[in-house]
Amino acid sequence: MNEPLPPPRPIPIKERLSVLYVEKGQLDVLDGAFVVVDVNGVRTHIPVGGVACLMLEPGTRVSHAACALAARVGTLLVWVGEAGVRLYSAGQPGGARSDRLLYQAKLALDDELRLKVVRRMFAIRFGQEPPQRRSVEQLRGIEGARVREMYKRLAERYKVRWVHRDYDPESWESSDRPNRCLSAATAALYGVTEAAVLAAGYAPAIGFIHTGKPLSFVYDIADLFKFDTVVPVAFEVAASAKANAEREVRLRCRDVFRRTRLLEKIIPTIEDVLAAGGIAPPEPAPDQVLPAIADKEPLGDVGHRG
């Protein structure tokens, strides 16, 4: 008699393919494998356990079994609009661990600790220490001015007509070509960054520079990599004669994620910026009830469900 197969265990984020896009198909599980069935009945197998983030575009339907399998193996499902923008919803493949969530929240709620974290983010992003005796708001203003200048310089390098960063997610075609390319590129970066944040056990909504959004911390961390990965790709494609610019951006972003080994860098960078606060994660309260049955050692990241 054959022994039943053990349940799938998450693969660490750093060993995964970054992102895949799916449109106009039915996602389901057949014989224990994740498949996409198109309108003609053609089946395409997806090694879902080896993918960090699956972007689901219009025309995609997902079965209950597929959602359950994605959750078990730690693949983030993200429902997006055409070209990978207009994020509608995301299925959480892991979740914030209480110790890391409390640690992140303590850093964000204390003004002095938050400033230390923001200063570290500034240093990583621009390769130099920020000016002394500046508030978070002042640092944000300096950052904004530098980012605008970086956009301007990239536009000059690739000979792209550039006005400013502006687009309307409700009217995609009203945006100019460079802005559409940038939106498609940053959407891919946000997807893999959110998957990494969840895998590390933190909360996407608790940001330090950004606030008030479901993905505030995702934007904070993604900004540290944006100009080294996806923004140059967006301007390069915008300057090309490619007919389907958004699709070309997505393909090139996937390549640059692999070439720069981005998924190996995100979680260590998260730990680095939070460590700048100089505090240790909080210990459980003495009167809290600890787990009666210890979890098995996971094969994936700490934020994945065991």
Rank of each mutant, 00 (worst) to 15 (best):
R247E: 12
A280C: 07
G49L: 12
R133W: 06
R305P: 00
G306Q: 06
E112G: 14
V289F: 13
P178Y: 03
E149D: 07
V29A: 07
P281E: 06
R254W: 04
R119C: 15
R259Q: 14
R133E: 13
R72T: 09
L77E: 01
E82W: 11
E149G: 04
P47I: 03
N2L: 14
L69R: 01
L5Y: 13
K152M: 11
G278T: 12
F217A: 03
A185R: 02
S171W: 10
E3L: 14
R100A: 07
R157H: 03
P298S: 12
T60R: 01
A205C: 13
D166R: 14
V289Q: 12
G94L: 05
V118G: 05
G127L: 12
A65W: 00
A52W: 00
I46R: 00
R157M: 10
K14A: 15
V22P: 01
V117G: 03
G94D: 04
V237P: 01
G306R: 15
P204L: 04
A245I: 04
R125M: 15
L198S: 03
R72V: 06
D255P: 00
D272V: 04
R120A: 14
A222Q: 02
H210S: 04
V289L: 15
I266Q: 01
D110Y: 08
K226L: 06
T211R: 14
N2D: 10
L87F: 07
K159I: 01
G277I: 03
A195G: 09
L263T: 05
S174W: 09
S216A: 14
V117A: 01
A90M: 08
L54R: 02
G207S: 07
M55Q: 04
E15A: 06
I206V: 15
F225K: 09
L263C: 01
T44G: 06
K152I: 07
E15F: 13
H45I: 09
M150L: 11
P169N: 09
E137R: 14
G144N: 12
V39I: 13
L139I: 12
Y21D: 05
P130H: 05
E170M: 14
Y219M: 10
A292T: 09
A292F: 14
I209K: 08
R247A: 15
Y219I: 00
V233I: 15
L115Q: 10
A203H: 14
R140D: 12
A294L: 13
C53K: 00
A184D: 04
L113I: 08
R146H: 07
E15G: 00
L30C: 08
V192R: 00
P268T: 04
A188P: 02
L17A: 07
A243W: 08
